[in-house]
Amino acid sequence: MATGHEGAANAPNAGEYVVHHLTQLNTTGHAQTSIVDFSVINLDTIVFSILMGVLGLFIMLRVAKNVTSGVPGRGQAALEILIEMVANQARSIVHSEQSRKFVAPLALTVFVWVFLMNSMDFLPVDLLPRIWQAATGNPHAYLRVVPTADLNGTLGMSVGVLLLCFWYNIKIKGLGGWIHELFTAPFGNHPLLYLPNFLMQMIEFLAKTVSHGMRLFGNMYAGELLFMLIALMGAAYGASAGLTGPLLWLGHVIAGTGWALFHIFIVVLQAFIFMMLTLVYIGQAHEGH
């Protein structure tokens, strides 16, 4: 434990510490046992993702309320840069003015939201869980603060993008046109190829959606895990004899700083990638094979 409050007797070992930190606070009150169980909801992911979403929207809404077409303030200029970036990307990828009215704001939302959720990783790994444990009075209460390090969070968003792909496929090509495409593309229009075409299309949709969600999840999960390992290094400070303790502490500081700095890059990059893939997949739904 980075804070070192717990006595040596009941201190968890490294494995327990990591597993504890990677267990969601859910509606059952204990760790989820089965891999898939749709009766369970991860409260921490829901709360923090809504919190981050509302925070992002609140900041943007405040700027939007006071927007001026004259000389912009710093906040407005910053948001304008962001919006211009998203609008340009949307324009170059989604070739439908009508669709962009929803898709471009969606991309902006995705970018800001994912960025903020990823940024929860910058908080010290033990800070919010500790506060939560103190608040509930349960020293073993679970809490995970990074919603994008929860597969449900990222897959929820990528499934949302998948549904949008379906919607735009039907909207642009018509239901009949889309079904026709499902069976005749990508290999060609021949009765023998109907099944391979359809299977290929299903694999494509599945691969897109899973990789879309998994990529963000994997990055943030790994980042979180590394922060925990670094924290463990610092936590070993008191238990180590001689020079090893101070060196571990120094290692924690150096590695923690280095990884946090690098993680800034990952946080922004992953938010950007998630936004770009959202645009690309929706853009693909607009184009025939």
Partner: peptide, 26 residues
Amino acid sequence: MNLNATLFAQLVVFFILAWFTMKFVW
């Protein structure tokens, strides 16, 4: 790493946030 109904909640939140941005921010 376990899948559960959080996924659907996140899906709904995703669309609400996007709708809000489309309506009031963009």
